[in-house]
Design a protein around this nucleic acid. Structure first.
Lengths: 215, 215
DNA sequence: CCCGGTCCTAAGCGATCGCTCACCCTTGCC
DNA sequence: GGCAAGGGTGAGCGATCGCTTAGGACCGGG
């Protein structure tokens, strides 16, 4: 309970809800392995090895290797949705809420890149049922961002000709951070979050009345 | 030479340079399979089967399965670089050239999604040497876009506080099209290209003098 | 002391993987 | 016709995969 701080650093304890301790260790090992090599290139022996167990131990806590990916993907998407919902419910203008949504969403993708990579890019290694469940969660994520943009358009803060397309682009921009972000690079997750929030506000035409004319 | 139009439609004949005919059929089959299932989930038997050959035929033209991915990745990156270079050399303002670069780059990622998916997302299934070669090509891609943005900043057309970060975001936005674009969706590659060119021009602060005040 | 339950391991099963080998068919040149 | 060369196949090798089975170490309660 007090020795869990040496593992990742950037990720707090997002897997605290995985109840048997050995099951959590296995799941954390699977996240690392899937992020490094991809789902199909990862062997169950590798996962068990990283968790300090024998290959057979995996099947005490999970029925198949795919169930591991399913659990990771569901928990991760719920976390991502939670982040966006929190940002969408903060006080202030649509501009403020969109900036908060983008910067926190990007911070999660950059800081927890290991998890985000699996969550965002290993989706179609899932079977049809599991994939359908995850896709439903992704639609909720999309609706959350689209809601903020629509409110900004209604209030006159934003100038967006194509709301659905712009929503798609904003999410796409944030998600792709998990692909390129380098932990040893020169940018911190906070810096990327701030940069991206600014870029997205430009995309929706926000701030035209108070900053565009500054130059 | 005249029966090659029934295959993909959107992709012209980008694999014309692959000289033995059987080798090209195998490479095309590999692109399809890698895009659908990913490199590691694709078997050499599947590739050979799609090309209408026996599993052993693959090894007459390619030494390993990885060599197939390497060839696909190199040709694809050269094509992407060629598209950006053509756009960067067109006549006109930096605004015009950036719009042309983004829209043609996006059209390639959307229309040739099968190829682009493999090129952009299966990169680290390559071995160290091949990956290093591809990464060098990607740096040239980055430099091409960054060059246009820098010229726009120098000419006063753009307002970009962080050139490297914005370049990264622009490329990231375009590349991620290969992940989400759906051929059966409601948008054509041309529409997405036009939308994205507009969004990118907003990101770099172009058009402030003649369109921002329209509303 | 025995017991059932929980957690884990050693060993290995059947299937499938990337890849190879021995051989065959077609083609063009003499 | 002879015959070398290149493009192809059927069969299968060794390795490794996801997963299963039989059994052992440990534990608290009677």
């Amino acid at each position: 309970m007090s020795t869990a701080e040496e593992t990742a650093g950037a990720e707090a304890q997002p897997w605290g809800e995985v109840t048997p301790d050995a099951a959590r260790r296995l799941l954390l090992a699977a996240v690392e392995a899937f992020a490094e090599r991809g789902y199909h290139a990862t062997t169950t022996r590798d996962i068990a090895g990283r968790a300090g167990m024998s290959p057979a131990a995996l099947y005490i806590h999970y029925k198949t290797k795919e169930e591991l990916l399913h659990r990771i993907s569901r928990i991760g998407h719920e976390k991502a949705l939670d982040i966006l919902r929190t940002a969408a419910r903060t006080e202030g203008s649509a501009t403020r809420r969109l900036a908060e949504a983008v910067s926190s969403f990007v911070r999660w993708h950059a800081g927890g890149r290991t998890t985000a990579r699996v969550v965002q890019y290993e989706l179609d290694s899932l079977g049809p049922d599991a994939r359908a469940e995850i896709i439903a969660l992704r639609r909720l994520v999309d609706a959350e961002v689209r809601g903020i943009i629509e409110e900004g358009v209604r209030s006159g803060e934003f100038d967006v000709p194509d709301v659905r397309g712009t929503t798609l682009a904003v999410l796409s921009l944030c998600i792709d951070v998990a692909r390129w972000f380098n932990v040893n690079g020169s940018r911190t997750p906070e810096e990327v979050g701030a940069l991206y929030a600014d870029l997205v506000l430009r995309m929706v035409g926000a701030g035209r009345t108070d900053t565009a004319r500054a130059q």
